[in-house]
Amino acid sequence: MSTPFEPNEEQPLLQAEGLTHYYGRRLGCRGIDLELHEGEVLAIVGESGSGKSTLLKLLSTELPPTSGQVSYRMRDGAMRDLATLSEAERRLLLRTDWGFVRQHAEEGLRMTVSAGGNVGERLMAVGWRHFGEIRDEAGDWLDRVEIARTRMDDDPRTFSGGMRQRLQIARNLVTRPRLVFMDEPTGGLDVSVQARLLDLIRSLVAEFGLAAVIVTHDLSVARLLSHRIMVMKEGEVIEAGLTDQVLDDPHAPYTQLLVSSVLAA
């Protein structure tokens, strides 16, 4: 996939160096280096237990690294080591400049709060205090993610799996973040629902020039959404590069196995 973005040749948006995490003595992931530039979509693929979710948590500051560091170019242009952010700065980043779309909607949504409230939360958190404006903005975002405005006051418990994921996306993108983390965003959805969601993510990423890190075990999701791909196995990156190049001309034995294991429809 190719989407428009203004590459900042000078400085990446997100940068990780030697990122390592151990759960006690058990390895989560080890020695990960990566750079992500504005508008770039990076897929992290691998099987369960390969360390891809650990890596996502490290990048998004949900988990502190055992060693290594993650830096992010803040909106003021300064590159900051995320470990040095104060909790207040970190939270502000998480709810303004970043998004996180989770596999299980109940972890990413407030299930007892209406769809409009879910979308409006970030706006209120950054100081919006006009009910009508919050509602209009939430309504615009529901339109964008193809949720009928008539469902605005219903809570997500009454939504289908696909709708919940789309609501998560609206909730995250309402503050126009520059970077979105996605953990198996299409996991557990029917194929037709998946296709619709992928198309939505794809077009929103292109429209807003979003940078994204997408963890998936589904190579077709990676192919459709990402510019670059990292293949992980046993906590380490074993192959990385341009998505179509890695998938069409895989070099590592494990990547060849992964690619050859995909069922052709």
Partner: peptide, 30 residues
């Protein structure tokens, strides 16, 4: 809106009160 005591204390520490407006938003919406 937030059942975890540790989290509400953190929210107070950071004066992170958007959540309370979510409740009021829900009131008006409903």
């Amino acid at each position: 809106l937030e059942p975890r005591e540790a989290e509400t204390r953190r929210l107070h520490a950071l004066a992170d009160y958007g959540l309370m407006h979510v409740k009021l938003y829900e009131d008006i919406a409903r």
